[in-house]
Design a binder for these strands. Structure first.
Lengths: 258, 258
DNA sequence: GCTTGACATTGACGTCGCGTCAACTTCTAC
DNA sequence: GTAGAAGTTGACGCGACGTCAATGTCAAGC
């Protein structure tokens, strides 16, 4: 393979820079702070990026467009270990991107109106002139509501799991989701022993990352219901599974966590 | 008037901050660097802003959205002394805003496609994943092509003119434009003494700000033809006036400037 | 009148995300 | 074999504010 650009998913730093509009300096910076490590570094020290890194970089750049600081970007991107989680995250951020698109649209309208008013010598109110500038800073992750510290220790624990530990952890979650779906389909109640056992598993699963008390655990499962992208994760297996989990969690929390 | 927000065009720093989404710190910073000076400062040191300042701030914020550095923003905003010039500038920057809106739209599409691909386990090419991130930095002003230094000295001279000197200067330009329109309507040629006299006036007018040599003067008048928003300024008085000025300038430049 | 709380002011220093420069190595082309 | 382009690692610099400290001032309530 020559130095010419191919559309293979194996790129050196210059090719990646060209495609993203970043400078090679920026990519080196991202490497230095551990935000985007190259797939491999040649014996000569040169950085090479593969498909995984490109996907990760896309995620990074999306969040960067939303003015999320690099430190938080790192935490968020690290929290998307598999394709499903990544898809959920991206769907979330997509809303931010579209909001920004709409903001620029209203901004364009504002400027257009201003130009028209200027030409006709018409006055404008302050509010009209400034419509669209105020951007409420994007809240990148619902999970952020549960505290930065929690996310940090969560990531530490995740790293500590090692590769196959992570695999097993994801499988455990899948088990929980499917058990929950089965319970829902059979029509088991939230307080039934079977469902309570599933909740216990779920609580254990969550606790690997951070240990919520009764209140926060109820809050978390409530969020699974409120937030569409979380809810879908559960309701995909069986409609109403998210609500079942929330109700069961409330009972579990009162029995075991208070 | 109480402290409640009214839609009058007289705002204190907190009210302006609220409407723009800026912090008061940012507004103070803009004051400190001379980018946005309050209309008046009370005896207690508090800053108050009027209609002029709000319009100026809108211009500033538009350019800030396009990632133009504050130093250049200052130069550009200072170069829009009257409403007509401001309207022309804003029309220019409007293109940048709409480009940004479109970029976010393609970005949203890219993310959407990525999510779909992830869910179906489909692979994507690097180019597809990174479509829309590369933003060629916005070139804020055609005038920038003529050099930053020129703009700086230009602004200094403009300030040195004083209020009524600025008035007279604008009137002089209007004279040139109208004389040129009259010449065009009568059908005078670019080389005719009358038109050459108008060009001399125009060159003098331009020279107040920066003294172009033969080549740059030809380049400038060529830009008046190429660039729609400049051309309209001249062609509004008489169609083809911009071209007439360019041709006349070419002759003038060879005779007088080389 | 006095206190209290909210918000203003001016410095001064800190921070984030790179840009830029220097010194050096390494690959490719002629 | 040598030039030139592009990579590497430090190190420092910078723009646009954030943040903190010390202080002043205004409107309201007691």
């Amino acid at each position: 393979m020559s130095t010419t650009d191919t559309d293979a998913t194996e790129l050196d730093i210059a090719q990646l820079a060209r495609r993203t509009g970043l400078t090679s300096r920026t990519l080196r910076h991202y490497d230095a702070i551990g935000l985007l490590t190259p797939a491999w570094t040649g014996d000569d020290g040169r950085r090479h990026y593969g498909g995984r890194e490109i996907a990760r970089l896309q995620h990074i750049l999306v969040l960067r467009e939303l003015d999320v600081p690099l430190s938080r970007i790192g935490a968020i991107v690290d929290a998307a270990p598999d394709d499903a989680a990544l898809a959920a995250h991206l769907t979330d951020h997509l809303a931010g991107i579209e909001a920004e698109r709409d903001r620029y649209a209203t901004l364009a309208a504002t400027v257009r109106r201003t130009v028209a008013a200027l030409k006709e010598g018409r006055p404008m109110t302050a509010d009209d002139m400034l419509d669209g500038f105020d951007r409420t800073p994007y809240e990148p992750e619902a999970r952020e509501r549960w505290g930065d510290a929690a996310v940090d220790t969560s990531n530490a624990r995740w790293d500590a799991l090692g590769k196959d530990g992570q695999q097993r952890h994801l499988a455990a979650h899948q088990e929980v989701v499917e058990a929950l779906g089965a319970a829902k389909r059979i029509g088991l109640s939230a307080g039934s022993p079977e469902v309570q056992e599933v909740v216990a598993k779920h609580y254990a699963w969550v606790s690997l990352f951070w240990t919520p008390d009764a209140e926060t655990y109820c809050g978390l499962t409530q969020m699974y219901v409120d937030d569409e992208r979380f809810r879908r994760n559960y309701d995909e297996v069986a409609p109403g599974a998210a609500v079942l989990l929330r109700d069961a969690a409330a009972i579990y929390a009162e029995r075991e966590l208070s």
